[in-house]
Design a protein around this nucleic acid. Structure first.
Lengths: 205, 205
DNA sequence: GTCTATACAAAGATAGAC
DNA sequence: GTCTATCTTTGTATAGAC
């Protein structure tokens, strides 16, 4: 009987992680309690604590289990999508992939947006993580042999474009929290056409 | 003696508002307590409550006393700055003014950024306020006789540009919370050149 | 108007039974 | 592994003195 089978620890952790992601994406880390999570997974509050150790532990679990693993350049290079040739990947094409990934997971994307601003507090568990993010992302991207238009240098010309693209994504994600509704992908496409304009980027997007 | 003069209610309210703005901009509304505010202004926690009624009242005070009053188009039209002619104001010039205003008040800008994402929670006191913001701002802007390049229609062509500009500002403001440092005005200038490009917008910016 | 004292609820965490 | 009971702290809010 499935209903009488004890749930494995992995399943429990996954349930807890998912419930926490849902609740925190809507109320923030400071806006929820362990009891809220417990109620959602049908456990007692100490029951949840048994798995996560502490409330901060819950957050670490979220970041390690959910972020940093999806929507990465590595993942993109394995898709076989246009511009994903591992020898000369196209940066705009990767950004398209990243945006599509975010758009397909609105709850996770909202979670990210909520956490990244909540983490301005110097005593927030994820403060350092987010402060260092831009530098870390830049370094990660720098390891790939992106195909650039003639005469463009990665370390100089692209730094601004990468930063602008990520700023734009954050800006759109905030706008997604409001009305009237906008379409993430459509909105990104507009900016992409500006940041990677024709004719210079034709064939390099 | 100034030091023995009882502070007037207005001064007290201003002190409390300012302390709350400072604390909330760093920790969010859910991240602070009335005691934190009380300590900062040198009062007891019930003393603060005497002025604000409740914790939510503190937030209302912030919004009404601080927002919606500064960085407005009305204000811009009175500056006499380039593009501020009330007969034919320039929208990009107003955005420059808005960005300069935000950049000169980093704490208030951060407060705004923190609150606007915290308010995704449907039970947040400012939820409705922020949900409606884009529509309300669009309507407010629509009341001015902006000077546009030949053939451009406000209601159609400009809707997207206004939205993109505001998305960009939100995106930059999130980026400001992180390292390495970026310059708000410089970053906006880059986007402005893309959203209001030459030669079409020459003389209209 | 501002304080002390206090009521009341909620939250995180621990102890220990089963 | 999960629960009940409980400890401790913190936070909002009220009552009442000065």
């Amino acid at each position: 009987m499935t209903s009488r089978t004890r749930k494995s620890p992995e399943v429990r952790r996954a349930e807890i992680t998912q419930a926490a992601a849902h609740l925190i994406s809507q109320h923030g880390y400071n806006g929820i309690s362990l009891k809220d999570v417990a109620d959602m997974v049908g456990m007692s509050q100490p029951g949840v604590l048994h798995y996560v150790g502490s409330k901060e532990g819950l957050l670490s679990l979220l970041v390690t289990d959910i972020y940093d693993a999806y929507g990465t350049p590595e993942e993109f290079l394995q898709t076989g999508l246009p511009g994903s040739d591992p020898e000369h990947p196209h940066l705009p094409a990767y950004f398209d992939y990243l945006v599509a990934h975010n758009a397909s997971q609105p709850e996770l994307t909202q979670l990210y947006t909520v956490l990244e601003t909540e983490a301005v507090a110097t005593n927030h568990p994820l403060h350092d993580y987010f402060i260092r993010r831009p530098a870390e992302v830049w370094e990660r991207y720098s390891e790939f042999p992106w195909l650039l238009p003639k005469g463009m240098e990665w370390a100089t010309d692209m730094r601004v474009r990468v930063r602008m693209s990520l700023e734009v994504m954050d800006g759109i994600q905030i706008r997604l929290l409001r009305g009237p509704k906008v379409d993430y992908i459509q909105e990104w496409d507009r900016f992409k056409a500006l940041i990677f304009p024709s004719p210079l980027w034709d064939g390099y997007r």
